[in-house]
Write a protein that binds this DNA or RNA. Structure first.
Length: 569
RNA sequence: CGGGGCGUAGCGCAGUUGGCUUAGCGCGCCACGUUCGGGACGUGGAGGCCGUCGGUUCAAAUCCGACCGCCCCGACCA
């Protein structure tokens, strides 16, 4: 590849539209351009990296025995109604009517379509197990597209689906995929962490997310330094610690106090001059058709995923302002458990141990002091209802934990029979009985592989690609094209490398050396070969490893071996 | 959808307070020449419906209104 004929629009300055490091660098290095919010064009080098990532993913999928297919992005909305996800997924799915008035959707994911396929084709246990995968553009009308291609409305996903005769088989298929995921991210050179996660609307009991810890990550994960426990904060359990706090402190009488215009924990604790953990906050939720109250300590965050799981709920949303007024008698922001009746009151474990706390009074501008659970208000059930914090201990070993932002690169789910039941996808088993196929599903956001790589592997000069993903493995930089020797040596090196199937680019542009150096560092080729008069007169060329930024001179006849050693070794 | 910021040449920005010019600067781009180991230099050029629409005014990039677009925080989310 010759730089002079290539379309690599690098930018000297940071684009105004980008904030995240990966977004800035991918723009500057000429990998992507924005069309509109959440929709990006992959320029030649962006696309090349995408292809390399895609190839790694496909190779590892094939190794597991999974077979590649391609399903339509265009799907009948009807299928989604059959599984009940039509309403759950809501606005995220792009829907419209075709010319015949039929309701169609652009696939945000493909469980419905693939299960429908399996249902139609699988008759016998002899047809099972199998795993299908595809690499395809998915469409999701995101509430807020963000950070360039980290969260875009259109993205390339590898999605795989396993079909087995029973749960044991599904576990085996799941394990194969899990291992393949580890190999994929290792080959990409990404610092990934598999964590236990919440399956969300995909369904199933257990899932694992493959995370890349980094500042801009939109998800939070818990890591235990001592026992290797790793989980999403969505699911990480908090331990029901026995009260080591002063629960025998002298109790004062419950009393109402005026707290004007203080509807948040922050306001109340500031106003009363007490810490947030001495507060109990009461949230009213609308849960599968009825209202419930959830209590957590003021310094804790409610974890809706856990509540849904524990109470076995499908829908859980915060109650509307009017509903809060109706249910508690007081305005939003002043709800409290004292005297609350007519709805179940659930509380997080930590609430059990608070004494002489402050809570809402169900009256505008008043709170109640010195309340304690059991004596001053009723709790129907205690369970783990909050999100873990850095102050918590590891739920497995009691060790110290760390909470990190992370990008979700992949997610594997044990779906079970959620979709096969909904679509009645059965097979005839050995024993002559009809049974539901047992599924797993496995996704990787391919473009997030690029974004995560750039986000975690860069320096002040630009991107640092690993050989496995680099847009070109080697760049040959002739510093002075008009010099005959420089030109000849450069062309020879370039041609030899190309013959040896090294992915090489020669920067044959009529540009000054400074520009060439800057561009090569910015785009991030792992290996640079610099040919200039200075060393050529001594029979030397310079090589530079981008990762370490270490340069050295080598004899011309050794440079090919050095490249092969680095790239292939 | 709530809060904040932004929109002037391909890119990055100034100018808007207080209505005054032919609308500026740097980079990039084109031509010629000199250069050639870390974003070179000289000379000469090209490039704008100041996001859109409407209003106020003798006069609007600048004031007023509406809308559109983008980014960030939040809500939400596989």
């Amino acid at each position: 590849m010759r730089w002079s004929n290539a379309f690599i629009p690098t930018l000297k300055e940071e684009p105004q539209e980008a904030e995240a490091i990966s977004h800035k660098l991918m723009m500057r290095a000429g990998l992507i351009r924005r069309l509109s919010a959440g929709a990006y064009t992959y320029l030649p080098f962006g696309y090349k990296v995408l292809e390399k990532a895609t190839r790694i993913v496909a190779e590892e999928m094939n190794k597991t025995g999974a077979q590649q297919i391609l399903m339509p992005a265009l799907q009948p909305a009807e299928l989604w109604k059959q599984t009940g996800r039509y309403d759950v997924i809501g606005e995220v799915m792009i829907k419209f009517n075709d010319r015949h008035g039929r309701e169609v959707a652009l696939g945000p994911t493909h469980e419905e379509v693939v299960t429908d396929l399996a249902k139609n084709e699988v008759r016998s246990y002899k047809d099972l197990p199998f795993t299908l995968y595809q690499i395809q553009t998915k469409f999701r009308d995101e509430v807020r597209p963000r950070f360039g291609i980290i969260r875009s409305c259109e993205f390339i996903m590898k999605d795989a689906y396993s079909f087995d005769v029973d749960v044991d088989g599904m576990e085996r298929s799941y394990k194969k995929m899990y291992d393949a995921y580890c190999r994929i991210f290792e080959r990409c050179g990404l610092p990934y962490v598999p964590v236990e996660a919440d399956p969300g609307l995909m369904g199933g009991a257990v899932s694992h997310e493959f995370m890349i810890p980094c500042e801009i990550g939109e998800d939070r994960i818990v890591l235990c330094a001592e026992c290797k426990y790793a989980a999403s904060t969505e699911v990480a359990e908090t331990v029901d610690t026995h009260a080591d706090t002063a629960n025998d402190a002298p109790r004062e009488k419950m009393k109402e106090i005026s707290t004007p215009n203080t509807s948040t924990v922050k306001d109340v604790s500031a106003f009363l001059g007490i810490s947030a953990e001495k507060l109990v906050k009461t949230l009213i939720y609308f849960a599968d058709g009825r209202y419930i109250a959830i209590l957590v300590r003021g310094d804790h965050e409610v974890n809706e995923a856990k509540i849904k799981k524990t109470l076995n709920l499908t829908n859980l949303t915060m109650a509307e302002k009017d509903a809060v007024k109706r249910v508690t008698g007081g305005p939003l922001g002043f709800s409290g458990p004292v005297g609350l009746s007519g709805l179940p009151v659930y509380a997080d474990f930590a609430v059990k141990y608070v004494r002489s706390a402050v809570c809402g009074s169900n009256k505008a501008d008043y709170h109640i002091m010195n309340v304690s659970p059991g004596t001053d208000f009723r709790v129907d059930r205690y369970f783990d209802a909050r999100t873990i914090t850095a102050d918590d201990k590891c739920p497995k070993c009691g060790g110290t934990i760390d909470i990190k932002n992370s990008i979700e690169l992949g997610h594997t789910f044990k779906l079970g029979t959620k979709y096969t039941a909904a679509l009645n996808a059965k097979f005839l088993d050995k024993d002559g009985k009809e049974k539901l196929m047992v599924m797993g599903c496995y996704g990787i956001g391919i473009n997030r592989i690029l974004a995560s790589m750039v986000e975690t592997s860069n320096d002040a000069f630009g991107i640092i690609w690993p050989v496995s993903l680099a847009p070109c493995e080697v760049v040959v930089i002739p510093l002075n094209k008009d010099d005959n020797d420089v030109r000849t040596v450069s062309e020879n090196i370039y041609n030899t490398l190309a013959e040896k199937r090294i992915d090489v680019i020669i920067d044959d542009r009529e540009k000054s050396p400074g520009i060439k150096f800057k561009d090569s560092d910015l785009v991030g080729f792992p290996f640079q070969i610099i040919i200039g008069k200075k060393f050529l007169s001594q029979g030397l060329v310079e090589i530079k490893i981008r990762k370490s930024n270490i340069s050295s001179q080598v004899k011309i006849d050794q440079v090919i071996d050095k490249v092969l050693e680095y790239v292939r070794g």
